[in-house]
């Protein structure tokens, strides 16, 4: 898929984080599915999305807090995987995906903070001239879109230049990451539900799983 188009889709998906709608499209598992289906491999898209979803699950946006950018990490991770796959004509190493995710979640959070600071200037602009309400407000939307493009376009261009060595036993690598995803999910679940009445349902789920494994 065209890199510019992929960056554009990524930037549009990232708007859903808070600038427009918040329909959940930017959640890593959803964004991964969308990018995967556009690139012709939904299963891997879901897999990469699931990894980032689980890492950032308990990382909740409260008030003015700007947590690491899980949404950007998921989009960049899935996009990078498919770009690597296309340029190298082989199954890429998932290690690169994790590394891109780490870098983009930090960079995304920094850019997010920058955009919010720039938006302050828009507010003061409005205070000086209240006829500019709509212009100031929707310029903020444009800045959020720009943030996505600044994040994804250079990342995808850089990833496109990488010549990743062919990876051995990709299936084993995937199986290992699957164990990591499940472990992260369980840890997050226990962390979120331990002090609530619903913890009994978690035990019920574990018992069902045990029955399945034993049978």
């Amino acid at each position: 898929m065209n890199i510019l188009l992929l960056a554009l889709i990524g930037a549009l998906l990232l708007l859903d984080k808070y600038a427009f709608g918040e329909f959940g499209l930017s959640q890593p598992v959803i964004a991964g599915t969308i990018i995967g289906s556009l690139c012709g491999d939904v299963a891997t898209g879901i897999f990469i999305g699931a990894l980032f979803q689980m890492v950032f699950l308990a990382n909740l946006p409260i008030g003015k807090d700007v947590p690491p950018d899980a949404q950007a990490a998921g989009i960049a991770g899935a996009g990078s995987y498919f770009i690597l796959k296309e340029t190298n004509q082989s199954e890429p190493n998932l290690m690169v995906v994790v590394l891109v995710g780490i870098l983009i979640s930090v960079l995304g959070s920094l850019l997010d903070t920058m955009v919010r600071r720039v938006n302050e200037k828009l507010f003061y602009q409005f205070l000086r001239d209240n006829r500019k309400l709509y212009a100031c407000h929707f310029t903020g939307l444009f800045f959020s879109f720009l943030r996505g493009m600044i994040l994804f376009l250079p990342t995808f261009l850089f990833v496109n230049l990488l010549k990743a060595p062919p990876i051995l036993q990709t299936d084993y690598n995937k199986e290992f990451l699957l164990i990591v995803i499940v472990s992260l999910g369980i840890a997050n679940g226990i962390y979120l539900y331990l002090k609530r009445e619903s913890f009994y349902f978690l035990i019920l789920g574990v018992l069902c799983t045990l029955v399945f494994f034993v049978l």
């Binding site: 499940v182 472990s183 539900y193 619903s198 799983t209």
Partner: peptide, 29 residues
């Protein structure tokens, strides 16, 4: 949420490697 958390190991392949989820979940927790 609690129920599906308990059911998560169902996506793993039934082999000895699946047991790694016990120490890993502990570390992540």
């Amino acid at each position: 949420g609690a129920l599906v958390t308990g059911l998560l190991p169902l996506i793993l392949i039934k082999n000895m490697n699946a047991l790694f989820i016990i120490p890993l979940s502990g570390i992540f927790l």
